[in-house]
């Protein structure tokens, strides 16, 4: 241990402001990055899920329409 007391540790031999500024800003930036990375992963999953549901709904609508007209269900015809 390089420091005699906790206040000496905080003071950092007179450079406390600069040292704690550096470590604090770094910690905050990394924490923010980590947080946004983690939330973006779940956000992406939710987005894909939402789109999937929308497409399912559209598909359902189309199926109903096709059943009523009994058309050829091929999507691309000659």
């Amino acid at each position: 241990m390089q420091f005699d007391s906790f206040s000496a540790f905080l003071n950092m031999g007179g450079y406390g402001f600069y040292v704690w500024l550096s470590f604090g800003v770094s910690a905050a930036l990394i924490a923010g990055l980590l947080f946004s990375s983690l939330t973006s992963h779940t956000k992406v999953i939710k987005q894909i899920g939402a789109r999937q549901q929308r497409e399912n709904k559209l598909r359902q609508v189309r199926k109903n329409r096709q059943n009523s007209t009994t058309n050829n269900p091929n999507e691309e015809t000659q």
């Binding site: 497409e55 559209l58 598909r59 189309r62 999507e75 691309e76 015809t77 000659q78």
Partner: peptide
């Protein structure tokens, strides 16, 4: 006339 019909695909 040859036709290519595109439709929404999911």
């Amino acid at each position: 006339v040859k036709k290519i019909t595109l439709d929404y695909v999911f």
